[in-house]
């Protein structure tokens, strides 16, 4: 298990497939061999209202819900990742695939939000020690969100030791959208050994960014969100 870096490839004009094709040709020039497909999906469950009353923040008037994210990654096909997200804290559980069967039993605690399901799909490439996954992110409704590129460097497990080569590799086919500073998630764990759970937490981070970019098109709009985006999903 190497070090994984996730990078959003800007697709301001929402070309989608064209941009992905562009990345494919660029990575092919580096000698990449396509090696199957990959998929990462994320389901989100909200804690039920009656159970989450103790989560009320007095004064703010809003209810802060604990969210439960269930993620699957085709790279680790035997695992299910469950991440409980509460303000300022994340608890990650890595479990068997059987965990999915356990979730209907928890339906009195957590309710699934079907329209919040996010997934990224695409092609997996290998370039000697690197594994590159170029995926397009879409919601469950089929709405296209953006391009997410995952690069994994297999020969090293500590980000501090291999960030320069990773950055150089990322910039070699993605250009200047890659900042020279490592992403905040890696920066917080710069000297630690990375595992599969870290990959999934980065995915969750990126998925949340994608959701937020369209969930509040008017109020919380970032510069990346397009005015023409129609949002059908509203959180709880």
């Amino acid at each position: 298990m190497g070090v994984t870096v996730l990078q959003t490839f800007p697709d301001a004009f929402r070309y989608g497939y064209k941009e992905v094709e562009k990345l494919h040709t660029r990575i092919a020039h580096l000698g990449a061999q396509p090696n199957g497909v990959f998929q990462v999906d994320c389901d989100t469950y909200y804690m039920n209202q009656q159970n989450s009353q103790f989560n009320d923040i007095p004064g703010s008037g809003s209810t802060v819900n604990k969210k439960l994210h269930i993620l699957h990654n085709t790279e680790t096909p035997a695992s299910t990742y469950a991440i409980i997200e509460s303000p300022g804290k994340q608890v990650t559980l890595c479990a068997d695939l059987m965990f999915d069967l356990l979730l209907p039993r928890l339906s009195h605690m957590y309710t699934a939000k079907k329209n919040l399901k996010v997934e990224t799909k695409g092609t997996r490439f290998t370039v000697s020690d690197f594994i590159v996954k170029i995926g397009s992110v879409s919601m469950s409704s089929g709405q296209y969100k953006g391009i997410l590129v995952e690069v994994e460097y297999l020969a090293c497990s500590v980000p501090a030791l291999c960030w320069p080569i990773l950055r150089e590799f990322l910039q070699s086919f993605m250009g200047f959208c890659v900042s020279s500073q490592p992403p905040p998630y890696l920066q917080a764990r710069f000297q630690q050994v990375q595992g599969p759970q870290d990959t999934m937490q980065q995915y969750l981070e990126k998925f949340n960014e994608f959701r937020e970019s369209s969930a509040y098109p008017v109020t919380g709009s970032l510069s990346a969100s397009q005015p023409g985006t129609t949002s059908t999903s509203t959180p709880s």
Partner: peptide, 15 residues
């Protein structure tokens, strides 16, 4: 090894 494959998140090659 298959028993710990899920909780330890083994990837395809290891499986």
């Amino acid at each position: 090894t298959r028993r710990v494959a899920g909780p330890q998140g083994l990837d395809r090659q290891q499986l």
